[in-house]
Write a protein that binds this DNA or RNA. Sequence first.
DNA 1: CCCCAATCCTGACAAATATCATATTCCCGC
DNA 2: GCGGGAATATGATATTTGTCAGGATTGGGG
Lengths: 236, 236
Amino acid sequence: MATSFHNPSCHHCKDRFSSIFCKAEQCNLDQIAEAKVCSVYRKGQVIFHEGAYPFGVYCVNDGKIKLSHSGDDGREQIIRLVRDGDIMGYKALLSNERYTATATALEDSSICFIPKDLFLNILQKDASLSFEMMRILSSELRKAELKITHLAQKPVRERLAETLLFIKETYGLEADGHTLSVRLSREEIANLVGTATESAIRLLSEFKKDGMIELEGKKIRLLDLAEIIRTANLQE
Amino acid sequence: MATSFHNPSCHHCKDRFSSIFCKAEQCNLDQIAEAKVCSVYRKGQVIFHEGAYPFGVYCVNDGKIKLSHSGDDGREQIIRLVRDGDIMGYKALLSNERYTATATALEDSSICFIPKDLFLNILQKDASLSFEMMRILSSELRKAELKITHLAQKPVRERLAETLLFIKETYGLEADGHTLSVRLSREEIANLVGTATESAIRLLSEFKKDGMIELEGKKIRLLDLAEIIRTANLQE
DNA sequence: CCCCAATCCTGACAAATATCATATTCCCGC
DNA sequence: GCGGGAATATGATATTTGTCAGGATTGGGG
């Protein structure tokens, strides 16, 4: 199981201005800070499992997480990349159903857990918090619908380029200004794009040959951003 | 433009127990009933356009609506089918951005319009309403993520069978217990499945040959539901 | 440091699906 | 009821993408 340690204060959390709690009322933040439990998960560890019942929401203090569906034939589909300040597990909680996705740490991560009753309770009382929750849900829904359209209409090549840009937007670049600051396996990239691993590998090689990117193990350096954007063929 | 007529009362609306407003407080319902404008849209008419700014939410009193993205090359992707009691246009409103989808009437429909300020205002005050809003958003998000996984992993044949079941779940059957009670063009079905029109037509013909369905113009009769479910290959 | 299992890569091939072309049918307005 | 344009249907073909196979590389644990 994950190691848990003394709770860091929510009031000094580095994500307090960007997370869902940025507009929550002070007294509610106090309650959350009191009740939450913060744990460290190692790379590869599962935070929650598809099919399990939720007992609260998770708020990422520091780390990178993937949320994925396990498809019929067992193939994984990554549906979201989670970063510092993001919460996860809220969908299941709000609709009072089981998790539809599995959360797995992409690297060692420290994650706070907020018990269900408290979270729902505060959500009822705090209009700012619940409005922020709706804003997040709307934005996720918008992204999901766009992804549906692209999956249905765009070829793998364009989707791969788009995925590289998406990873960059989500986790940013390393100090060199080019390297994606997350290490994903080719299979994970394929499961993000929605294609076969071999196709992802092949296209990454092509991108490299065309000078758009540079590959070094799991490091991916974006060399020609303009060309990647062009390849992604975004219109909206 | 759509014909508008004297507002029907929200308190006697046939959808008042199933819509988002089912748990709203009485006084807020009064305000909405007061301010809303109900209009009739003819089949094919657009209720709102992708790219436009929202001025309120729409609540379907009676009718059938499709919400669709217009993809890069102009091909349409249908992302939602809307029925009596559903609301639409809330995503854009909540995130204060422009519509990302176009709403088009699939048949003559009467639709109520609730002004933005009032809706947002009541959402702030009425915890039950905002909780219901979150529940709806969660459920839509869940469906969208499932659709992403299926688009990425399931062949067209399975997705078409699934789409037929989805249409049945959404709009139900006619009195005969077999005919889908909505008329969609083959192209619309294809745009729901996420495939080429010809592929949808071809597979529908196969389904017919296999005795799963019966086709008569735009009427689709589901004859062998068990076999359709088997073909859809649902696991979750 | 070395080995073994994972992962990554590449080619050949097969399958799924889209595209193009062409009937055929349907349905709407006159 | 009768054109005519749109929607539907079907075949031929091209393209995209997935699958399978085998080899190269890598990285983590002993």
